[in-house]
Design a protein around this nucleic acid. Sequence first.
DNA 1: TGGTCATGTGATAATGATTATCATGTCATT
DNA 2: AATGACATGATAATCATTATCACATGACCA
Lengths: 146, 146
Amino acid sequence: MADLLHNKVEQSLRAQGMRYTSNRRKLVSALEDTSGPLTVDQLYRATKQRVPFSSIYREVRALFEAEVLSLIHSTDRSNRFELAEWLAGHHHHMVCVRCMAISDVALSPRGENKLAELVDRAATDTGYMITDHTLEIEGVCPDCQS
Amino acid sequence: MADLLHNKVEQSLRAQGMRYTSNRRKLVSALEDTSGPLTVDQLYRATKQRVPFSSIYREVRALFEAEVLSLIHSTDRSNRFELAEWLAGHHHHMVCVRCMAISDVALSPRGENKLAELVDRAATDTGYMITDHTLEIEGVCPDCQS
DNA sequence: TGGTCATGTGATAATGATTATCATGTCATT
DNA sequence: AATGACATGATAATCATTATCACATGACCA
């Protein structure tokens, strides 16, 4: 069902005494339709300017605090939001060093296992208690190679 | 030789028509003495307030553009600088989700090879031409576990 | 159904980090 | 020593983000 995502978000928000309003729906939909995290600016355009900046900033922050969105920083100085891992699944990011586009990429289950092993091994030395990991891959995207 | 780093930086800067001044030296030294990337604020304190903010911002940016430093963004919204890979070696980052401290961590050569394989495999699907990768590991640092 | 109260909205103002400006200082080269 | 390029530090300007506030909307209850 196409509304599964919205249902999950709505339940989560309600449980926190928040409403799943049309602004919030538009933002979640915009992120659902895209294959990577978006900046506030990109969200403004993706919602066809129908959500003013002040609201985008407020809502994106509220959704972040409600753990519906997560926040990504990358090699350009921009902040980008994406659906949280429990909604979008575990994945990594590819960044184009030319156009700065970011797209999601998932490893194979086998690859992800290997990565988790590597992370665990690194952790034992440091004494950290590991909670998560993200791989950022830099490169030149197909469009920018020509 | 303890000055090897400074020599390399100085040569690189000279080749670009820049001077390796005492402000710049202080910043590079501060980063050399630390096991992770530093914010502008941390650099201000690390240089014992002897380099004013306006200069830190300007120099850190100049050194970044000269490819002596690189810029890191992490889960808190801060920008952090570190010595570029050709000076500090390839490494990854561990972030403490409690205190937000970031420290460097290097994988074993074997681990790094496996990681490179994983990255290459992911790349073939996407059509990206890979140039680099970074692993960010989140967790709770030893100090914050008590 | 209407009233009431918490929550959400959008315009605008305030904040804070970063960058630009500019007069002055420093270094290298002749 | 003189000249010109680069560097410095104080200050002002900019830009993204956050706070404020009057008004709107939706949920709940009498």
